[in-house]
């Protein structure tokens, strides 16, 4: 192997292992803090790169809420203020817009409690 080819192989190896590359098993997910409050999530729009894993930490500012990512099988209870936070993990396996919502009735404005995870290029609504 020539020196030039060896150099190219090393550079390629460095690029592959650099942050931002496709996730490998055991990669630490990016942490996203979400606040739930009657009747909203903040932030209500979260961008995730395609293939990126995120850990959503949802903390309530008032009562107990639910957190469900529609069509992704994620469904957790968010404890009341001062009682910690819920964790939901999500991997942007394919581009699209994934709706999340409170799925525990929390008052008359409950239906306003929705948000979206945008994976990669914003496409049509994912299920």
């Amino acid at each position: 192997m020539s020196a030039r080819a060896l150099f190219a192989a090393i550079v390629l190896l460095l690029l592959v292992s650099a942050p931002g590359a496709a996730p490998t098993q055991g990669q630490t997910p990016r942490v996203v803090e979400i606040t739930a409050e009657r009747f909203e999530f903040w932030p209500s729009e979260i961008t995730v790169a395609e293939g990126e894993a995120v850990e959503l930490r949802i903390r309530s500012d008032d009562t107990m809420h639910g957190f469900r990512i529609v069509g992704a099988g994620t469904n957790v209870l968010v404890p009341k203020r001062g009682k910690g936070y819920a964790v939901a993990r999500f991997t942007g396996s394919r581009p699209g817009r994934y709706t999340f919502e409170c799925n525990r009735m929390c008052g008359a404005g409950h239906n306003f409690m929705r948000g979206v995870l945008v994976v990669g290029a914003a496409g049509a609504d994912a299920p």
């Binding site: 529609v70 069509g71 009735m105 929390c106 008052g107 049509a124 609504d125 299920p127």
Partner: peptide, 20 residues
Amino acid sequence: PAAAQETDQGYPATGPISGY
């Protein structure tokens, strides 16, 4: 089309009652 993809599992559902 989007609605057709969405699962209806758990629906229809009533309650729980809430209030203040």
